[in-house]
Simulated assay, not measured.
Amino acid sequence: MPQVQELKGNIRVFCRVRPVAFSSSTPPSSLTPSTPSSCSLLTGAQISESEKQSGKKNAIHFDKIFSSDSSQEEVFEETAPLVVSVMDGYNICIFAYGQTGSGKTHTMEGRSEARGVNYRALDMLFRLALERRTTMKYEFKVSLMEIYNEQLKDLLELHDSKGEMKRLDVKPDPSSSSTSSTYVPDLKLVTVQDLEDVQRVIALGMKNRSTSSTQMNEQSSRSHCVFSVYVTCHDLLKGGNFFGKMHLIDLAGSERLSRTGATGERLTEAKNINKSLSALGNCVSALVAKSKHIPFRDSKLTHLLQDSLAGDAKVLMFVCSSPCDSDAPETSCSLQFATRARGVELG
């Protein structure tokens, strides 16, 4: 049984290095764990050319590093202790960050033969609910939305009764005593009881997600995808209810506009993606500095996650990285952001 993560502590950061694509003509860099089981990453992508020629490498430390041959099972085994906490009433935030094509969607969603964190998390929650059925009764609901060009879009119910696009926004949660608690009015919540229900929900939502082709990725996600799980627990022995919420997020890829070849609508999308990722970075920096004001309202993404990135929430970040030297600038930015995130103390 996974151990519940301690309430107080830093944001946990896992680094996952994707394999070199078979079609890639660029050689891999020295982006590798210092030892097979190490939490230190050796990288030549962040140092000068003279240092690289001298063979010097930098070591960056994370809570866990997964090499390019790590399986989905190995990744989730380290993630599971955090997932358990949502059944004990905590807000959980697990998100994948990195450049376009670095493996974020594979980590969070995966494929039918290699399921990612989203499916494995729900599978574990269902099994735990069955094990605890004599003392606890759990109810699970899910939602699936995307943040596209700074607009919230319900991927399970695109239009209202008049056939118009539903306009959603983030609001303070009136049912919570916490001033930081947020919710999205009119967001469709679907009750799920098993993995088949989850698969149907995700399959429907992914058909409606905004994707397009760029020079960096043939099927690039143009939005942040937020799969949320809402858990209601009824204590059968002591009475009373408590609630937990878990956001599982596949962020749109961070990218330099010069590399994507974006124009027109794609350019607008890229600018909004980078703007919201910058807002996330600003919130992380403010949390590290323990500022009195955290700029959560600077973007829809950070406003939505306000109650899941601070206070008693538990946060895990996957920084997904490319091993290719041609991607070194983006990899460097991703690793620097992840290093800052790891310095945030919660609780």
Rank of each mutant, 00 (worst) to 15 (best):
T26A: 01
P27L: 08
P27R: 08
S29V: 07
S30C: 13
L31E: 04
T32M: 07
T35D: 03
P36N: 02
S37F: 00
S38G: 12
L42M: 14
T43F: 01
A45F: 00
A45C: 13
A45N: 11
Q46F: 11
I47K: 02
E49T: 15
E51P: 03
E51L: 00
E51R: 00
K52W: 09
K52Y: 03
Q53P: 01
G55F: 05
K56C: 13
K57C: 06
K57T: 08
K57Q: 14
I60T: 00
I65W: 03
I65E: 05
I65F: 03
I65Q: 01
F66A: 08
S67W: 10
S67T: 14
D69I: 14
Q72L: 04
V75Q: 15
E77N: 13
E77F: 10
E78I: 08
V83C: 12
S85R: 05
V86E: 05
V86S: 13
G89Q: 10
G89F: 13
Y90A: 01
Y90P: 00
Y90W: 06
I92M: 05
C93Y: 12
I94C: 12
I94K: 13
A96H: 00
Y97M: 02
G98Y: 08
S102I: 14
K104I: 08
M108E: 01
E109A: 12
S112G: 05
R115A: 08
G116I: 02
N118F: 10
N118H: 11
A121W: 10
D123Q: 04
M124P: 08
L125T: 08
F126Q: 02
